[in-house]
C-alpha cells in the first residue's frame, strides 16, 4: 500500500488533461443552471451521485484487477451520449500517458496496446491506481474527487466565483463523497461473483443533453 500515491494521482496538477475539461459546468453556466456557490454545490451533488458513482465503481473494479477491457465495454454501455464517450476515451488516453510515465506497469502497457485510441478514463484511472499500489477504495476516491473538483475549478474561471467559496463547496460535499466512494467500492467487490452487469449505471439527462450540445459549440473555453 502506498497511500500517498493517492495525493499524486488526485492532484489537479497531475498532467492527464483534466484542466481542459469542466465536467459539464461550462454549458450549465452558459444557461444559468450554475450561477453561484449554491447552484454549483447542487450541480456537483447531482454529478457525484450519477456520473461520479459510475466512474468510481468502474475505477474501483479496475483497481481490484478485474478485466479492464470488460470494464471498458461496461463504460460504453453506460455512456449513451457519443460526445461523452469521446471525452472519456480522450481523457483515458491522456491518463494512460501520464500513468505509464509515473507508475509503469505491464497492466498499463497491455491496456494501452489493446486500446491505442484510449480506454474510458475511469478504467485507466483504476489500473493506474493499481500500478501505484493503491486500493480500489482509493481509486473510487480519485474518480469522485475529479467528478466534483473539475466543475468547481472551471466555475471559478467561468463565473469568477470566489475560489474560497468554490473550495468550501467541495468541503461540504465530503460526507456524501465518502458515502458514494463506499457504495461504489462495495458494488465493485461484487464484480468477481456477478460480473460487470452489477456495476451502477446511474444516468443524468441534463448532463447528457448539454454534453452533446457543448461538443458542437463553436466558442467554448473547455473541451467538455
Amino acid at each position: 500500500m502506498n497511500r500517498a500515491a493517492l495525493l499524486v494521482l488526485a492532484d489537479g496538477r497531475f498532467p492527464a488533461g483534466g484542466h481542459a475539461h469542466s465536467g459539464g459546468a461550462e454549458p450549465a453556466v452558459a444557461v444559468g443552471r450554475i450561477r453561484d456557490a449554491e447552484s454549483l454545490e447542487d450541480f456537483c451533488r447531482g454529478r457525484l451521485h450519477t456520473a461520479g458513482l459510475v466512474a468510481a465503481a468502474l475505477a474501483a473494479a479496475a483497481a481490484a484487477g478485474h478485466d479492464p477491457l470488460a470494464l471498458d465495454t461496461a463504460a460504453d454501455t453506460r455512456t449513451p451520449v457519443a460526445a461523452l464517450r469521446d471525452t472519456a476515451r480522450k481523457l483515458g488516453r491522456q491518463m494512460m500517458r501520464a500513468a505509464r510515465a509515473t507508475w509503469p506497469s505491464a497492466e498499463l502497457d497491455a491496456l494501452a496496446a489493446a486500446r491505442p485510441r484510449g480506454a474510458h478514463q475511469p478504467v485507466v484511472l483504476g489500473v493506474a491506481a493499481r500500478s501505484a499500489g493503491l486500493e480500489p477504495l482509493d481509486a473510487a476516491y480519485a474518480a469522485l474527487y475529479e467528478t466534483v473538483s473539475g466543475p468547481a475549478t472551471a466555475t471559478v474561471r467561468l463565473l469568477s466565483l470566489d475560489p474560497f467559496d468554490a473550495t468550501a463547496v467541495l468541503a461540504r460535499l465530503v460526507p456524501e463523497l465518502d458515502r458514494v466512494a463506499a457504495t461504489a467500492t462495495a458494488t465493485a467487490r461484487r464484480v468477481a461473483e456477478e460480473g460487470v452487469d452489477v456495476l451502477p449505471a446511474a444516468s443524468a439527462p441534463l448532463l447528457d443533453i448539454s454534453a452533446q450540445q457543448h461538443a458542437t459549440r463553436p466558442a467554448r473555453l473547455f473541451a467538455s
Binding site: R13, P15, H19, A20, Q94, R97
Partner: peptide, 21 residues
C-alpha cells in the same frame, strides 16, 4: 486544434498530454 480550458500555458507547459497526443 487542442483545447486548453482557458489556459494555453497549462497545455504547453504544465500538462502537455493533449499536445503530445
Amino acid at each position: 486544434a487542442v483545447e486548453t480550458g482557458a489556459c494555453p500555458h497549462t497545455a504547453i507547459r504544465d500538462d502537455i498530454s493533449a499536445n503530445l497526443e
